[in-house]
């Protein structure tokens, strides 16, 4: 019983899970500013060049876009379930679900790669002769397409790195049913990336 103060001290290390989550939410608002600004630019140029935006959007592959939307939505499900699993003390399931999230994120990027390469092989990339010969509105559309989906893709990569770190921590029991706020934080970031895609998809692929 004499040794119990040390044990208690170890258990009572200050931890503020609510504060951590609130910090992440505040960070997500800065991401909202970053992408919000781009959505503002998109909406203004779209408003000024409506027909050219419609024409340019015809070039994008709706099937690939829809498929990628489904992939990202499913990855949001798997990361949400992995948090529920760790809360239920089911480490194995949580690890499997985190790996699934990583696989789905990679699948999204592979699709994006092929989609971009198809465009680039057709001569449509920023500064290409073919693109510059098109109308101003179409040049703006593809400029925004590359910047916005590119920045979103970068966020997918960052999210995957974060989840890979969480996976390692979960495997090493650093994340468990009593301490999973870091996994929650990575999850929140991943969901934000999903929400951004929820808006990017109709605005770029479905305005034909």
């Amino acid at each position: 019983m004499i040794s119990s103060p040390e044990n208690t001290a170890a258990v009572n290390i200050h931890r503020d899970d609510i504060g951590t989550r609130m910090g992440i939410w505040l960070f997500l608002f800065t991401e909202l500013l970053l992408f919000g600004g781009m959505f503002f630019i998109y909406s203004i140029y779209r408003f000024l060049h409506q027909n050219e935006f419609h024409l340019a959007a015809l070039e994008l592959n709706v099937i690939v876009g829809t498929f990628n939307t489904a992939i990202l939505l499913t990855s949001s499900l798997t990361i949400a379930l992995s948090i529920a699993a760790i809360q239920n003390d089911n480490k194995k399931l949580s690890v499997i679900l985190q790996i699934m999230t990583l696989v789905l994120g990679a699948a999204f990027l592979v699709n994006k790669y092929f989609e971009w390469m198809a465009k680039i092989n057709h001569g449509i990339y920023p500064g290409s002769d073919l693109l510059l010969s098109k109308k101003p509105g179409e040049i703006l559309f593809f400029g925004l397409y590359y910047v916005m989906t590119g920045l979103h893709g970068l966020h997918v990569i960052i999210g995957m790195v974060l989840i890979a770190v969480m996976l390692r921590l979960t495997v090493r029991n650093k994340i468990d049913s009593n301490n999973f706020v870091r996994l929650e934080a990575a999850g929140l970031y991943w969901h934000l990336v999903d929400i951004i895609w929820i808006f990017l998809f109709p605005l770029f692929y479905l305005i034909t």
Binding site: S76, L77, A80, E184, G187, L188, H191, D194, I195, I198, F199
Partner: peptide, 11 residues
């Protein structure tokens, strides 16, 4: 869709 993700997935 976003409000579903915000309220349920993001708790």
């Amino acid at each position: 869709k976003s409000s579903l993700v915000l309220s349920v997935f993001m708790h």
